[in-house]
Each structure stands twice: as structure tokens, then as C-alpha cells.
């Protein structure tokens, strides 16, 4: 068997050249384009992954924002509830206070009116009593309007303080005695004796008629008065009645 060495050498060279040709014009371009496609696919996958992660992140942020909004809403509602409750309590307290004030004012007004009414009734009762007493005393005999009061006047004068008693008939002046009617000389003398006895010295008496006294005697002094008359008694009774009515 014969081997053509030139053919062997040429075929070896040819095959080496073919290796270079295919490497340069077939395998390398194909590998490059496959690698580029792989890189593009990887890039797309990375982008998709990045977008997925971004979407998840945004979803988490949205959930967090929603939770925060719900929490804030709850807080607002809670605050509003508390505020409304407080305002309601305040309004109720104010209303209750106003009602209490109004009720107190009404009660005070009622009390005032009641007292005024009672005072008015008392005054009317006092006036009626005075009127009744006046009418009753007008039926008394005239002697009773003076005699029964001389001794009482002397006792009242005796009970006065020393300075007030000294003013009565001081310096020899006559003691002015108010009487319900004109007194007789005997009655004047009786009155003078009683007063002299009460004062412990001799005094003179002048009489002034005042029918308003109804019955009884009174002495007016610069700083005091000695009243021993029905008029004074009725005044005290009317005052007492009015005081009871106000109480």
C-alpha cells in the first residue's frame, strides 16, 4: 500500500485551514449570537426580576400606607369619639348647670314671691287686726283711753336710762304728753304726779291731742320716745305679724 505524502500534507493543511475557517465564520458567530441571546434573556429576566421586586416593594409600601391610613383613621375616629364624648359631657354639664341655675332662680323667685305674698298677707292681716282693734277700742269709754295708761307711762319712764330721764322736763320745761283725746285737769294732774313719782322730781305736763293714738299716752323726747298707746301696741303687733309672715 502506497501513501502519497504530498496528499497527506496537503490534506492536513486543508483541514487545519478548514478548522480556522469554520471557527472564524461559523462557530464563533453562532456562539456569539447565542451568547448575546442568552445575555439578552438574562437581562430581560433580571429586569423582570427587578420589576417584580419593585412591584413587591411598592405593594409592601402600599400595604404599609394602607395600614398607616387605617391606623390614622382609627386614631382620628377615636379622637373624634373622645372629643364628642367630652363635648357631650360638657354640654350635658352646662345644660345641667343651666337647668340647676334656672331651677334655683325659679325656686328663689318662687320663694321671693311666696315671702312677698306672705308679707303682703301679713301686712293685710296686721292692717286688718289694727283696723279691728281700732274699731273695738273706739267703743271703749273715753276714761278708759287715758286712765289705764297713766301708770304704764310712769313705769316706762322709770325704766328709761338716767340720761333719758334727765332730759324729761329738764330745766323746768313742761313734759309734752301726747294723748288720744283732750285730757281733763284731773287726768293731767294724775299724769303729772305719776311722772314726778317716776322721775323723782316735780315736772309740769302739757298735753297734745293725737287721735291716732286711739288710746294711751306717749312722750316724745329729743333722743327717745316713751310710747304707751294702742297705736304703738298695734304697730308692734303689725310688725310682729309681718315678721312672722316673712319668716
Amino acid at each position: 500500500m502506497h501513501i502519497d505524502w504530498w496528499t497527506l500534507a496537503l490534506q492536513t493543511i486543508n483541514l487545519l485551514v478548514l478548522v480556522w475557517i469554520l471557527s472564524r465564520f461559523l462557530f464563533r458567530p453562532i456562539a456569539d449570537i447565542v451568547r448575546q441571546r442568552q445575555a439578552a434573556a438574562d437581562e430581560l429576566l433580571e429586569k423582570a426580576e427587578a420589576q417584580r421586586q419593585q412591584a413587591e416593594e411598592e405593594e409592601k409600601q402600599a400595604e404599609a400606607a394602607q395600614k398607616a391610613a387605617e391606623k390614622a383613621r382609627g386614631n382620628v375616629l377615636q379622637d373624634a369619639g373622645r372629643e364628642a364624648e367630652s363635648e357631650k359631657a360638657q354640654i350635658l354639664a352646662d345644660a345641667r348647670k343651666q337647668a340647676d341655675d334656672l331651677r334655683a332662680a325659679v325656686e328663689a323667685e318662687i320663694e321671693r314671691r311666696r315671702k312677698a305674698e306672705q308679707a303682703k298677707i301679713g301686712e293685710q292681716a296686721g292692717a286688718l287686726a289694727v283696723e279691728i282693734a281700732t274699731k273695738l277700742f273706739t267703743r271703749l269709754p273715753d276714761s278708759a283711753k287715758i286712765d289705764g295708761f297713766v301708770q304704764g307711762l310712769a313705769e316706762a319712764v322709770a325704766k328709761l336710762p338716767g340720761q333719758a330721764r334727765d332730759e324729761i322736763g329738764a330745766d323746768g320745761a313742761a313734759v309734752t304728753v301726747l294723748a288720744a283725746r283732750k285730757m281733763s285737769d284731773a287726768e293731767v294732774a294724775s299724769c303729772r304726779d305719776a311722772l314726778s313719782g317716776a322721775l323723782g322730781r316735780e315736772v309740769s305736763v302739757s298735753v297734745k291731742v293725737d287721735p291716732a293714738l286711739i288710746a294711751g299716752l306717749e312722750i316724745e323726747l329729743p333722743h327717745a320716745a316713751v310710747r304707751n298707746s294702742f297705736h304703738a301696741d298695734l304697730d308692734r303687733i303689725a310688725t310682729e305679724l309681718a315678721g312672722h309672715a316673712e319668716a
Binding site: D4, W6, T7, L10, N14, L18, L22, F25
Partner: peptide, 23 residues
């Protein structure tokens, strides 16, 4: 001095065809 035989010619043809196809 180089003898060119038919396998070499055929191989060149195949190489040319493959190169053209690749290009």
C-alpha cells in the same frame, strides 16, 4: 514538485462550499 490529487481537489471544493455557506 507538489502532486495535486483528486482528494485534494474534492477537499478544496468542500472547503469552498462550506466557506460560502458560512459566509
Amino acid at each position: 514538485p507538489v502532486a495535486i490529487t483528486s482528494p485534494v481537489i474534492t477537499t478544496w471544493g468542500i472547503m469552498a462550499a462550506m466557506l460560502a455557506f458560512c459566509l
